[in-house]
Every structure is written in C-alpha cells, then in structure tokens.
Design a protein around this nucleic acid. Structure first.
Length: 1000
RNA sequence: GCCGGGGUGAUGGAAUUGGUAGACAUAAGGGACUUAAAAUCCCUGGGCCGCAAGGCCGUGCGGGUUCGACUCCCGCUUCCGGCACCA
C-alpha cells in the first residue's frame, strides 16, 4: 500500500506542538486583532464520540485559518464536569464521583489532543474545580442579594426515580424524564429560582443587535413567548371575601351591627376586635378635623400591628353642619356624675335620656345628617376610603329596646325609610348604606383580573373562565350553590397531566360557578363565571374573558354550554359564526367604527386596565436535590431565614462524607461535616442549604473564566474582558438554543447590571450545527449498532482525514444532520495520499504554467472566502480541483508551498510534515495566509454560452472582455450554430464573459 | 394552528444570488496493470429517443413574471426545526 504513515506523523507533530507551545495564548499579542472562538465545553463522559469531533475538529479549520490571517485567536477548551452521570456511575461502581470525573477528564484530554487542534490549553478550566465553583457560588450570593436568586413556591417536575426536580426542558414531550425515562409528576414545593422573567423583554429585544441566524433568534423568541395585550379587571356583582378583618373599634355594638350587615350582604367576613388578635388597649384619639382622616388614622395605627386587613370607621351626627361631639354629649349626659364605677350600659342609658330631652326641648324633631367614613388597609396600603351621608331626624320617641352601645343611633329616624334607625330591617339599612356596601364589596371581592391580547373585543366578552387552580376559586366556597361539583372538577384536573389536558382533551369541559356573576366593565352587563381546564393557571393571570364570537376556544366552549355570543368585530363570519382576525368595531358603544388596533388602547384605558406583556417563559429553577453539583452557598439561621455564605468562606466546599444514593432526601442533608462546618462558622442552630445547582449555572459563565483562569481575586478581571470579550463566534449544538444559550445570555445581563462584566451580550455570532448520523442515516446508538468510533477511524485513516471528512459532508453553518459515509472518508484519504505523492514529485519546475497560476489564485480566493462562510465543504472541493489540475502538469515549489498553506487548516499534521520535507525549518501553522492577485484571476479567453430564445445551443471561445459585436461576429462564423440563426435577431442580450442570448 | 428553514442524479452535496444545472466526492458500470486480488490509473456516469451527429424532457407540483428562473411572485404539496387550548 502506497501511503504515508499517518500515525507516525500525527504523533510526531502533536508532540512538537505541545513542546513548543505554539497554540498557547498566555498573554495576548496586542499587535494582532483578537478573535475569541468558543465551542461548548464537553461533559467528560469518559469517551470522545464523533459528535465531539464534529464540534471541535471542524471548528479548528476556522481557527487555524484565522490565525493565518493574522488574528490572535483564542480557542479554549475545558470540562463541564458536574452532573448526574458521574453520580450514577459512582453509585453503580461504588466509587466517588470526583475520582470518576477526574479520571475521565484526564483520559478525554488525551483524546482531544489526538485531534491535533490548536486549542489554547494554557487557559483551560473545569466546573468542578473549587477555584471555578468558588466564583459560581460568589455570583449566586450576589444574585441572591439582588433578588435575582430567590426561594419561592413553584410547581415542579419531579422524577421519583432520579429523586430530583427537573427543569421543563428536561422533561420529554411524552412527559418522561430526560435522564431515566420515568414518568414525571407535578409537585408543589419551594425551590431556588432565578428571575429570568425579569429579563424577558431584554432577552428578546437585544436579539436584534446580534449577528445570529434568524432561525435561532426566532426559536428564542418563541421560547420566551411574549404576547402583548392588556390586563383588565372584571368586578364581581357579588361579594364573597372569605376571611378575617380586624375592625378598629372597641365598641361591641358597632361591631355586631357591622357584622350583621356584612352577613346580610353575603360577605363571609369575620370581623374581629383588636383585642381578639392580641392588641390590648387599642385606643386612638380621634383628633383629626374630618371623619375620613380619623378613620384613616385608626386604620393605620392598627395595621402596624397586624397583617390582616384592617377596617376602621369614624361616624357622627351633624346638625347644621356641626358635628355633635360625642365627648360633649357624654359630659352633658353625665351631668357632673363620675363615669367611674358605671357600666357602659349605664352610661349609654344616661346619654339616651339626655338626648330625648334635647329632642323634646326642640319640639320633638330635629333635622340632622349621619356621616359614616370608612378606611380599609391591607398590607399597609389603603385600598378604600369612603364616606357616606344620610339624612335623619332626631326623635324623642324611641321605639323598641334602646341600644346603650349605640346610644345616639337609638334616637334617630331615617328620612328614607321613616323607620327608627335601630329597628330598620337589614335590607332597609343596606339600602341606605349602599354606597358603603358597594365600596366595601369592591375591596373585599376585588375582581377577576384577566389578560387578553384582544382588549378591542371587550364588549363581546359574554362570560369569564378561571383556571381550576385559580386561588380565587377557593373563596367561592360557601357562596356558590354547586361547590361539590366544582371541587370534583378541580380534583379531576389535578390528576391529569399537561399532555392529557392539552392534546387528548380538545373537547371543552368546565363547571359554572352558580350564583357568581361578574360585570363586564365595558358595558356593565352581568356575565357568568366558569372554571375550565382550557384556561391555564400558569399563563397570564390564570383567568380570561371569553369572547366566543372572536376566539375559537371560547366559541367551542360557548357552544357546548349554550352561552351567548356577541359579535363586536365586523367581518364576514365563517360558517361556524366566528372570526378571529382584527377589523372594525361594532356593538361597542362609543368605540364603534374604530379599528381593532385603535380600539385596543382606548378600551383598555376606559375600563382602567393596563397594557401589559406576558410571557411563556417561567423563572429558572436552579436547585437540585443531588450530590454532584455546586453547593448552593446559603445557610439558614435559627428562624429559618436564608443568608448568603460570605465571600471569605468560599468556596463553600462540596462535602465528601455523603451517601449519595437517592433516597428522596438530598444527599447533602446527610453530611455531618457540612452541618458542623455551618455551626462552627455561623453558630449553633444554623443549618446549611442542602441543594446543589443545576449544571446550566456552571456553563452560564465559563467563557469568562477561560480568559482569566488563574485569577485568585476575581472571577474574571475587567481588563481581560476588555481584551477578549465579546466572543466573536460561538459554535455549538442546536439543542442548546433555548436552554444554555438563553441562560447564559441572562446570566451575562445580570452580571452586566451588577457592573461585573463589560458586555451585555456574550456572543456576537452563533452558528448551530447538526448531528452526525450513523451510516444507515439513523441517530447513532449502541442498540442500533451504527456507532462510528472516532478513535478507530483515526487509527485507520488518520486525524487529518477524519477532520476533513467531517468538514466535507456539507456546509457547517446549517443544522442539517449528515450521515457518516464509510466510502466518503476514503475519498478524503485518497486525496491526502495524492497530496503526499505530489510533494514527492521529483520534477518540480521553476517556471509556472500561466493556466495553473490562474487556478492557483482562484483557489486562494475561493478557499479563503468559503472558510469565512463556514463552507468548508466547497473549500475542500476547490483544493481537490486544484490538485487535479496540478497533477497533469509540472509545478513550481512556490505553488506547492502555497497549496500546502491553503491545506494546512484542514490537514495540519500532513501539511506540517510536507512543509518540513520541502525544507522549511519553521511551522507551517505560523505562516500567513497566501494572498491572491485580482489581476491573475481571469483568463485570456473565455467560453461564452450562446443561447437562442434562452436555450443553450453552443459555445464560442472569445477573448476575455469582448464586446457584444465581437461575440456576435464569432457566433455568426460558427458552423454548428448556423442552423439556429434566422436572419437578424430582434433582440440580443449579452453578459460579458458569460453568455449571449439571441431572440428572433 | 402560528413562526422559521428546506425539497436538485443512486448517495452527501455544488451552482459567482436572475445568466452554460448537477462542481467535488461516494456508490455503480467498463477498461488498463496483475497469475489473481487489493491498491493505482483511464473512460462512462440525470432521464428518454438515436449507430451517430444531435434532439426532447428535467431542480416537489400547478400557474405567473422575464430574452432567460433551482434562484423572483402567486397557489398547493411535502419534509425538518421552534411554539402551541398561551387567551
């Protein structure tokens, strides 16, 4: 077999390159332009597969070409070494994940070296190195302090087999665990999260500035899923706040009366006195000029002492605009007697008697006004402030039993009902108190907030739907007449997983909340309210306004439940009587005639809504109940409050005294050392966080560490970042588009906002790559027996051939999957052997064939240009064409050397060897990229296609740059073409050096 | 359903962005060398008709624009990727 010994050559040069350190970066050579080329750091599974070669070796072609173009290229490599496989392997083989990982890293490093890539090995790192994860933890504490990292309740995906929480992305479409295939359950629990949703807008908007393929940007936009619309409140026409409210009064009579009224109004509110919630001696001086201010003062004072909603009032009788001061009345009633030793009843009775006398003295009846002010505070915020006035008459003829708690009220008769105030029926009193009741209703059953992208259709909202899990639903208990039915439906929904709920169950189901009505804020119409599982609790507000005439889902639901449909956007309705597009408004009051676009904002404004965006994206869950990850650097004090571990205690080391077999309890919870460490540093009773971080956290900033991998005081200095960032191009797998790529962009933005990085976007350009399939066209898998082992291929045909073949399969910048062709790689090897032989050719000439020289310059141009476009396949094709051309001729040493330089990025070992064989003493990889001469690209004569009526009928040879007439003359002379020529052409189209088209 | 990208020989893929479709490579067929095989080299290599010269057809399908369309426009079809009862 006539062939070169690739094994020997590759070993020889890999050793020399390593010794001379020609690919090390050390400090930047600032005389050269920088170029940061990044590839995704691999997980050290223990064996390099062909995918790694596709990811790294092909990119190396680009890297080497850029080096030859005079760039200081930074091409680092490291290991993303935390993660589940190590833990599982350790469990299986009964050893430590750290040992397993370190061993794999060492082995894979050797395999990676066999690629012969120009990696900047002096700048490597690994996520498992404490010097690395120290900074991962440090960032976490910064994020925690800035409310980016937080602990909050969430519904999580739980795999009971892996005993861990999974991110949505880690759940397969069938609802199975990505790692083990087990069915994933939904579970409510507290979890560590990152507020990525806060960055949703920026993550979308900043895409515009990036030089990325549109498809990747679009995937991210879809993933974030921004919809622009409005949030609108629909008040309920029935109040049903269920809960406790503290009434800021010590007056039992007042409280009882108010409680009675609430009960009668349908409130399920329990009023409590300050004493009942443990506030003794609640007493606030009513010294403000108005009732309203006094009510507010009382409410605020009490709200300081409780988290419950607080209601306070102040009321009084006014005669001729003057308040009848209760203190004065009381003093007059007591007439010098001491209050000491008297009961409230006794004082009250004295006041009643006194008042009767006043009324008598004035002729039996005096016109007055009863003013009633309320203030309601929840969470320290005033939610309502009302005052009502009703005309009453003071009387000397009390009826029924006097109420000593409300002595003044016992003596007034309502002018509205003509009845004694204390004897009015609840209905009568409620009617009088209507403004207050309304006001309070609004507070207590606020309303249902909906999100809609179509506020223009508000007038067409004929019913509402809440998600079955909507928190408001619980408050309807005791109010609706069909609670059993509602509860049953909720249970049914909870057992269904999302897949069943969305795909299998297109048929609409739901339950009406009997007795509950909402008010369409646009037209004040009362509309029914349902719960139905077609409304998702996690999206928008978990509630919708339903517009059956203009939404298919609402239409389907309305049809099934026979609900009213109201058309508000004019258009031809389909057969189904539904139109989901935008148009001109009708049946919409003052908005009739507006376009949907115009009406959206206006209608929202009218009903007090707010234009708002919602997102499909959820906050990123980052806690994992597993061992082999970065410990979350949080400790809890005795009260259970979380504190970040201070920087001086970082790295917060992963304990080693742990049984990491999955038991449902996080492995770190079993570490004595970790607990002792925590108590020793922070004090007795303090406990450590026992969760570790999602490995996507590790990979969210590794590119920043590469550039400053030995820095002991910062994760990456601003100086180094200014030198190297942003990443000029990031090559990676399409599967990372919506996870790693989005997370790391988010991470970078947070760091940017904290002033810790120079760039708000890490990756200037991004190229996704597809997969290498097995020879049978299927995804490689052991079970299919179609796995191509790169080591074997390298041994058989050489690293250069493997790399070149992977580059030759197709264009690199696309996500096409290419099958490995066993014959194809042989073709590459044949090419390399012909190159080897070519250099051995004894008869190298001094002078150059002009013809060949032109091809050489064309080749320089083509190969260089294609590499810039990641079209390594056509670059290689051009090198093959040129070799074919050289083989029929004698060539100069200069031409051969240029050819080798063009080939060097593709076949670094062989070209280095042949470069040496031609007598060069320095590395070919330190050479510059050859330049082409524009003037030598064109030949003296060209063959021009002759078309008749647009069809090619022949060719004519003509001098380059000939005029139309000159070419036409040649055409006329051509015998073969004569039969197509019929006199004078009506029209001639001539494209210089290309074609001439004659039309007759 | 919405969005993005495709469909070219037996196969992977080319085509300077409207200008000679199928470069380069693989598989296949034929030949040379060889006792033979491997390797290597040479020839053929989209389909149909034809001894040939040559002709007709041909880039998923149907229309259109143009002197000329793989390329642009309209309609369909199909495959791949992202999202999806997302209001």
């Amino acid at each position: 077999m006539a062939s070169y010994n690739h094994e020997e050559i590759e070993k020889k040069w890999q050793k020399k390159w390593k010794e001379s350190g020609i690919y090390d970066t050390e400090n930047r050579d600032t005389t050269k332009g920088k170029e940061y080329v990044l590839v995704e750091w691999p997980y050290p599974s223990g064996n390099l597969h062909i995918g790694h070669w596709f990811a790294f070796a092909v990119v190396d072609i680009y890297v080497r070409a850029r080096r030859m173009h005079g760039k200081q290229v930074f091409f680092p490599m490291g290991f993303d070494a935390f993660g589940l496989p190590a833990e599982n392997a350790a469990i299986k083989n009964n050893l430590n994940p750290k040992e397993w990982t370190d061993k794999n890293i060492a082995y894979m490093k050797g395999q990676l070296e066999s690629m012969g890539n120009a990696f900047s090995w002096d700048k490597t790192t690994s996520s498992t190195d404490p010097e690395y994860y120290k900074w991962t933890q440090w960032m976490f504490t910064k994020f925690f302090e800035n409310d980016i990292a937080y602990r909050g309740e969430g519904i999580v995906n739980w795999c009971s087999s892996c005993n861990t929480v999974l991110a949505n992305e880690q759940v397969l479409p069938e609802g199975d665990c990505e790692r083990c295939g087990n069915q994933v359950e939904k579970k409510k629990m507290d979890e560590w999260k990152m507020r990525i949703t806060k960055y949703a807008d920026r993550l979308i908007d900043d895409l515009d500035s990036l030089d990325w393929p549109e498809s990747i940007k679009e995937s991210q936009r879809n993933w974030i899923g921004r919809s622009e619309g409005a949030e609108i409140d629909f008040p309920l026409s029935l109040s049903l706040y269920g809960g406790e409210v503290v009434f800021a009064t010590n007056n039992h009579g007042k409280l009882e009366r108010m409680q009675k009224l609430f009960d009668a109004a349908g409130f399920s509110i329990k009023l409590k006195t300050p004493l009942e919630i443990g506030v003794k001696d609640f007493n606030v001086e009513e010294d403000r000029p108005t009732l309203e201010e006094n009510a507010e003062k009382k409410a605020r004072a009490l709200a300081e002492k409780t988290d419950l909603p607080v209601l306070a009032d102040d009321s009084g009788f006014f005669i001729d605009g003057e308040e009848i001061d209760p203190v004065t009345v009381k003093r007059n009633a007591l007439a010098g007697q001491s209050e000491e030793g008297m009961t409230i009843e006794e004082v009250g009775n004295l006041m009643i008697t006194y008042y009767q006398n006043v009324a008598k003295a004035r002729g039996g009846s005096v016109d007055a006004e009863w003013h009633n002010a309320f203030c309601l505070i929840t969470s320290k915020k005033i939610v309502s402030h009302t005052q009502t006035t009703r005309p009453v008459t003071l009387t000397d003829e009390p009826k029924g039993v006097m109420n000593p708690y409300l002595p003044l009220r016992s003596l007034y008769i309502s002018k509205v009902t003509g009845k004694h105030v204390l004897l009015q029926s609840d209905e009568e009193e409620l009617e009088e108190l209507n403004p207050i009741i309304k006001g309070i209703q609004n507070l207590f059953t606020p309303s249902i907030k909906v999100f809609t992208t179509r506020p223009d259709t508000l007038y067409g909202a004929t019913y509402m739907v809440l998600a079955p899990e909507h928190p408001l639903v619980e408050k309807f208990k005791g109010v609706v007449s069909n609670w059993d039915e509602i509860e049953a439906y909720q249970k049914e929904t909870a057992t269904k997983d999302d897949i069943v709920r969305t795909t299998e169950n297109k048929e609409k189901t739901g339950v009406k909340l009997e007795g509950v009505l909402a008010i369409n804020p646009a037209n004040q119409e009362e509309i029914p309210v349902f719960i139905a599982d077609y409304v998702l609790s996690g999206y928008g507000t978990g509630a919708i306004m339903a517009v059956p005439a203009h939404d298919e889902r609402d239409f389907a639901f309305a049809k099934k439940f026979k609900l009213a449909t109201k058309e508000v956007v004019s258009n031809k309705l389909t057969d189904e009587n539904i139109f989901t597009g935008e148009g001109t408004l009708i049946n919409s009051g003052e908005f009739d005639g507006l376009t949907s676009e115009e009406a959206k904002g206006k209608i929202t404004k009218k009903v007090g809504g707010e234009m708002k965006s919602t997102y499909r994206l959820r906050d990123w869950s980052v806690g994992r109940q597993r061992y082999w990850g970065v410990p979350i650097p949080i400790v809890y004090d005795k009260e259970g409050k979380a504190h970040p571990v201070p920087e001086k205690h970082l790295p917060w080391l992963l304990p080693e005294d742990v049984d990491f077999r999955p038991t449902g309890e996080p492995p770190l919870a079993k570490s004595k050392e970790l607990l002792e460490r925590t108590e020793k540093i922070f004090g007795d009773g303090w406990t450590p966080e026992v969760e570790t971080m999602d490995t996507f956290v590790d990979s969210s900033w590794y590119f920043l560490r590469y550039i400053d991998n030995e820095n002991g005081t910062e994760f990456s200095s601003m100086e180094k970042q200014k030198e190297w960032m942003p990443i000029d191009i990031y090559f990676g797998g399409a599967e990372h588009t919506t996870m790693h790529l989005l997370y790391s962009r988010f991470w970078q933005k947070v760091l940017f906002d904290l002033g810790l990085v120079t760039e708000s976007e890490p990756y200037k350009r991004r190229i996704n790559r597809g997969l290498v399939l097995g020879p049978d066209g299927n995804k490689m898998s052991k079970s299919k027996g179609n796995v191509i082992d790169p080591d074997e291929q390298v041994k058989r045909l050489g690293s250069d051939a493997v790399k070149m073949y992977l580059a030759f399969m197709g264009p690199y910048g696309e996500t096409t999957n290419y099958p490995w062709d066993l014959g194809g790689i042989v073709g590459i090897r044949r090419f390399l052997e012909r190159v080897d032989k070519m250099i051995d050719k004894e008869n190298i000439m001094d002078s150059e064939d002009v013809h060949l020289e032109r091809h050489l310059h064309q080749t320089i141009k083509k190969v260089g240009g294609d590499i810039e476009l990641y079209k390594f396949n056509t670059a290689i094709s051009q090198l093959m064409i040129f070799l074919n051309q050289m083989q029929t001729l004698k060539v100069s040493k200069n031409t051969l050397e240029i050819f080798l330089r063009l080939l060097a990025p593709f076949a670094p070992h062989l070209t280095e060897e042949l470069w040496e064989r031609l007598g060069n003493m320095t590395s070919i990889h330190l050479e510059e990229w050859p330049e082409f001469d524009e003037s030598k690209l064109v030949s003296d004569t060209v063959s021009i296609a002759v078309q008749i009526h647009g069809k090619v009928r022949g060719l004519v040879e003509s001098p380059s740059g000939s005029s139309e007439d000159e070419v036409l003359a040649l055409v006329r002379k051509d015998e073969g073409l004569s039969k197509w020529i019929e006199g004078e052409p009506k029209r001639v189209i001539y494209v210089e050096n290309k074609l001439i088209n004659l039309v007759f």
